[in-house]
Amino acid sequence: MKQLVIPFRKTEKQNKPHHADKRTGKQRAISWGFLAPSVAGVFLFFVAPFFVVIYYSLINNVVRREFVGLSNFIRTIENNAFKLAAVNTMKFSLIAVPLAVVLSLLLAIVLMSRIPMKSTFRSFFLSPLMVPVASVVLIWQILFNYNGLVNDIVAVFGVDKIDWLKSPHAQVAIILLFLWKNLGYNMILFMAALASVPQDLIEVAKLEGANDFQIFYIVKLRFISSTILFVTIMSLINSFKVFREIYLMTGDYPYDSLYMLQHFMNNTFQALDYQRLSAAAILMALVMIVIIAVLMKTEDKFEKDIEE
């Protein structure tokens, strides 16, 4: 009887000789050995404090350390100062971030077109990045002072003097500051992204009879979707950092329209209220996670289009 020989196809793993397994394991161990200090540092300075913050948010105070469940979160959510700060931060981000993205994209489109003195304009928009924060703050204080230049200009139109930084319109001044500071950087990112859109696709679109708007919306926008996501996230992060300028201009306790989440956290830290600080930080982190998840999902959808 003939023996049936069934060819047996070895898996890649099975194809490897035994000494190859040992070498892979050894390499892995060496790799982890070299990674260990960095991992330890990340753990010590990022991961461990993260868990410490969670722990602090669940106890009553650093002295008694009694577990109190979610009462710190409830206390924080019910705190009027926190509510005000959260609303102001959200309002600022909802206005400033889209403006930063859209305006910088528009600027990038304009600067990518054939206009004279392109490099001059590029330098002009990038120069705010080089100006120190303290100088910017000083200039803004002078401009928006009760007796400042802005009031002189609006007076020409018959508008009464406004103490801009201490009025309900204070966010206007800060949004202008934010845009002035960040448009240049976003614009450069968009310019790089626009330059990387394949030209042959644009040519094909033109041949198909697409107009400029359709080319932009259907072709370019999809290709730069990852950059848009990146710029949005960076702008969102920068919108929180604007606390630095507000703090330098108005101190620990600004007018209520400028009171941001960072003010709340800064002040609760100074008051040694670590429980409320930790709870506020976790709540803010959760909101950020949700926002970024939404943004990434949207970006995924755009990217699939491109892949298809």
């Binding site: 705190n79 100062a81 306790y253 600004p254 007018y255 209520d256 003010h263 002040n267």
Partner: peptide, 14 residues
């Protein structure tokens, strides 16, 4: 008005 706004924040915080 401004003092009321700023001090309110301070008192609410604390």
């Amino acid at each position: 008005r401004i003092i009321q706004s700023r001090v309110s924040i301070y008192i609410n915080e604390n």
